[in-house]
Computed example of a mutant assay.
Amino acid sequence: MGISRLAELIREEAPDAVSSVQLEDYRGRVVAMDVSVAFYQFRTAMPKIFNRHGENISPLRGLFYRTMHLLENGVKPVFVFDGKPPDLKERVLAKRAAVSGAKRKAADPAAYEPPQRLPRRDSERLLGYLGVPCVQAPAEAEATCAALVKSGRAWCTATEDMDALPFGSSRLLRHLNTKNRDLEEISLPVVLQKLGLTQEQFVDLCILLGCDYCEKIRGLGPKKALPLLRQHGSIEQVLHSTCSAQKHPLPENWPLEETRRLFLHPEVAEPSQVVLEWREPDEEGLLQFLAHEKHMAECQVRSRLEKWRTACLKRAQPQSPGPVTKGSKKQRRMVEFFQVKKRPRKQIPKPGRKKMKTQEQPGTAVET
């Protein structure tokens, strides 16, 4: 889920923090991505494609196409795998899964399928053949993505969830999975400046809005939580000053301090120990794995590799200046770089005319 209604609040209260960008703007940039979020998108948004062994290969196919799209645009992706989820998240996720599964099973028992586990080994093999680095997070993948950004090892975190911001990622890239739509970059420093909050107060705001680690306080939505935190500075002061047990009761066993610690001091992979190396895709390995083992159409794999190869050749060619059209920049001439000054014309006396002596003026001293 991420942080409930945080994106909406940022657009309303800190619109300057949100920029519309293009994928080409990230050429040469390192983009950290959560593998589980990507697979969830492929599993829910793409139609199921079963191979001859009955395996649903649509998530693997989606990962292949998206990664190739990033590579052919000059982006350097690094995929981060989740580790052991925090105990707080396990309780919340189990509760949500039970409610969601019961609703779907009640709606259509024949069509209900239990959620599939992430095909970790297949995704690692695919990314290895693509020449893209992978990182194993000890806990939450987005926390390690944020740590890579904070350390300068990555430029931004690419995810739809807003958790990367309270984890401290200075840049969040959204809508990477949407075609024909501008990407959206959110700047955390600008968010904090426009909201008038410190990072610690921003984490408190995210807790009040609702996160994956604890339930929210009933009645304290975005319209109330932000001004109250601006006024009082912390959740404890907000509760002490304005809230009563009858009006805004706290959830039972509410783990405020533990949730704060998860956001402000998460368990992450040490950025300095992370090896980030990119290689050219292994075309033969990709064909063997995708076409022969996973039985994806070989013509599709070859066609996608050919498109990537063409894009690489195009980027390697020097760009020649095109014709000057209306609205385009005019090519500058040499005289615009070096200013040319005309020399003063030398006066040459005409022949046959004698130079007249100047007559001394009366009262002028003559030097002897």
Rank of each mutant, 00 (worst) to 15 (best):
L60M: 13
T44L: 00
A291T: 06
R309S: 15
F202D: 01
S36T: 13
P251C: 02
H232T: 02
F50W: 03
H248M: 02
L126Q: 07
R174Q: 11
C211E: 05
P109E: 00
Q136N: 13
T144Y: 00
I3L: 04
D87A: 15
Q246C: 09
K194W: 05
G74K: 12
G74D: 07
R181A: 15
F338R: 10
V340F: 12
L165F: 07
A297H: 08
Q201S: 07
Q201T: 15
V99W: 01
G62H: 00
L192I: 13
S20I: 09
F50P: 01
V274I: 15
K76S: 09
A7M: 03
E252L: 10
E113Y: 00
V149C: 13
L148I: 11
D82Q: 08
A14M: 03
M1Y: 07
P318F: 03
R345D: 12
L290C: 12
Q317C: 06
R117W: 04
P271I: 13
L197Y: 11
T358W: 04
S4D: 09
F42G: 03
N51K: 07
L63W: 02
N73W: 09
L9K: 10
C214D: 01
P222Q: 09
S100Y: 00
P281T: 12
V301M: 06
P321H: 08
N253R: 14
V275C: 07
Q116K: 12
V75N: 04
L286W: 07
